Computed example of a mutant assay.
Amino acid sequence: MEVIIATFFYARVSTVEQSLDHQVSQANDAGFEIDEVIADHGVSGVQHILKDRPEGKRLFDKLRHGDHLVVRWVDRLGRNYEDVTDVIRHFIRSGVTIHTVINKMTFDGVTTDPVQQAVRDALIGFLAATAQAQTEANKIAQRAGIEAAKRNPKKYPGRKPSFDRLKTELVRNLINKGLGTSAVAKEVGLTRQAVLRIRDDPQGVEAALQRWDM
């Protein structure tokens, strides 16, 4: 029985800035002939390991001994050191050869020399650690950016109020007429919490309306 060897390209497209077509084109330009593309869209590599992703888990069923798995970089497989190393080593033990588009790196289980195996495993560990370190660096940069923006309210206005200036005035008029907060909320179409905020925090409400130019 003839064994058919296939080359799979796996992509994780987690943001609108990324593109599946672009990742596949990069692989083709690098000389890879892809038989099938498997992609997860809108899935975080931090929150979801490969086995838990809708399409990623299919790789564990589809890949056979002798097949090739192409990824743009190891971070497509995961953002956690243990996850990435476990996935790569699992596929290698299954006879799958893994290729990266960036730098055209190859990982397989061909070698039986213990020294070469150690070098291979060390490189896998280094790349997996780099992927996790990059994720941590991005988190720190993101938090720093948010904190900097918060110091400039015009750049970080906070959550948009559920009420506008017209509803704010309507709420105040109804409260002044003696209506209870629940009745006011029902009449204006706001939550009771929003009505309480308008009643109890006039300065904060005004600041929020100004930040959103409302």
Rank of each mutant, 00 (worst) to 15 (best):
V3S: 07
I4T: 13
I4L: 14
I5V: 15
A6P: 00
T7V: 09
T7F: 01
F8Q: 03
F9A: 04
F9N: 04
Y10D: 02
Y10G: 05
A11H: 03
R12E: 02
R12M: 06
V13P: 05
V13I: 15
V16R: 14
E17F: 02
E17Q: 15
Q18Y: 03
S19V: 08
S19D: 06
L20C: 02
L20N: 01
L20E: 11
D21T: 12
D21L: 11
H22I: 07
V24P: 03
Q26A: 14
A27C: 06
G31D: 04
G31S: 04
G31L: 05
F32W: 11
E33I: 13
I34Q: 12
D35S: 07
D35A: 03
D35Y: 02
E36P: 00
V37W: 02
I38P: 07
I38D: 02
A39V: 13
H41A: 03
G42L: 09
V43S: 01
V43C: 02
S44Y: 11
H48W: 09
I49G: 12
I49L: 01
L50H: 09
K51R: 15
K51H: 06
D52A: 13
D52Y: 09
D52S: 12
R53F: 07
P54S: 04
E55Y: 08
L59M: 08
L59R: 10
D61M: 12
K62I: 10
K62W: 10
R64Q: 15
H65N: 14
H65I: 03
H65S: 13
G66P: 09
G66A: 08
D67R: 11
H68C: 07
H68P: 00
V70G: 03
W73I: 01
